[in-house]
Amino acid sequence: MTWTVVAAVVLGALSPVVRGLVWGVPVGFLSVATVLRSFIGSALTVLVIGGVAFFALRAAALPPEWVDMGTGLLGGVLGLLLLLSSARRMRDVRGLSILCQRLQEEDVRPQAMRALDRLLDRVRRENPQRYIALVLMATGPLTQAGMWNEARSRLRGLDDEVLTGPQSVLRNQALATCELQFDDIDAAQRAIDRISRPTESSIEVWLVALEALLMALRGDSERALGHLGTQDTEDNPSLRASHRLVRAHILASRSDEEAAVAELEMLRREAGRAGLERVVRPRGPASPLAEQLLQSENQSG
């Protein structure tokens, strides 16, 4: 079974490359565990197929060299077909997942972004609905990596006529958040206005917080405070941080700097440095206070 062993080793070695090509991911982005699983899985598949074929062909009384070559070829071809079939299952989601993880690594971020653009552009040509789903999935990782412009561009490019109701809600909520990173309050408001209200409660609470933030940024503190109302944020730390952000802007707009700073300190304790950075941009009444706290943190660090 020399040919079978050779085919198993060759296909096992090529399997990570094949998966990377099918998923639209550079091979270097695959984890060691993924490479090992791919190698072992493909090699074992070829060996099993080759073993079965060996006994079947030997029973046919063929010359030994034909049996050896036939089992190797059969194992290699069927192993390759099974590898391609396996790699193509959910290939876009797998590729997106790997690339989004790599976006968080600064040294490979440009390469990951180029690969992500290629993946999304291909899916947009092949399946518009799947493209929408992938863009919505990629928005969070893109913004976490600080790539707000890329996220905003993709969200803006989605066709409103193609979006389903739930997709429209998620897209416009995310787009409003992105627009705020560029201090475009009017664009953020337009994105929110496109959402049919009320929506499901888990999303509605965030929309209310976002609307209150827009009011606070415009200096309409009374309306912003009233809009927040008495929402329960006890079991939702992220929502509680958003409320603190809004209240900090409200207090700063009322010239109550001491209370605003206290709110910002609580925000920093609960959400870390990222919480204060959310106060700095978009620009609002509490932004200078947040900048002072960040500068103080840098100096003490």
Rank of each mutant, 00 (worst) to 15 (best):
M1L: 07
W3Q: 06
W3F: 03
V5L: 14
V6D: 04
V6R: 11
V22H: 06
G28P: 08
L30C: 06
V35H: 10
A43L: 03
T45I: 03
L47I: 14
F54L: 12
G70C: 04
T71L: 01
G79P: 01
R88M: 11
R94K: 12
Q101T: 13
E105S: 15
E106I: 06
R109I: 05
P110H: 00
M113G: 00
D117K: 11
R118H: 07
L120H: 01
R122H: 11
V123P: 01
I132R: 02
L134W: 13
W148T: 06
S153M: 12
D160T: 03
Q167G: 04
S168G: 04
L170I: 10
R171A: 02
A174T: 09
D186Q: 15
Q189I: 12
R190V: 04
R197F: 04
E200M: 08
S201Q: 12
S202P: 05
S202W: 13
I203W: 14
L207R: 15
V208Y: 10
A209P: 12
L213M: 15
R218H: 06
G226K: 15
H227P: 01
H227C: 08
G229E: 07
G229W: 08
T230N: 15
Q231R: 09
Q231N: 10
E234V: 15
D235P: 00
L239H: 03
L245T: 07
L245I: 02
H249I: 02
L251V: 04
E263W: 02
M266E: 14
R269E: 10
V279S: 09
P285W: 08
Q292S: 02
L293A: 09
N298R: 14
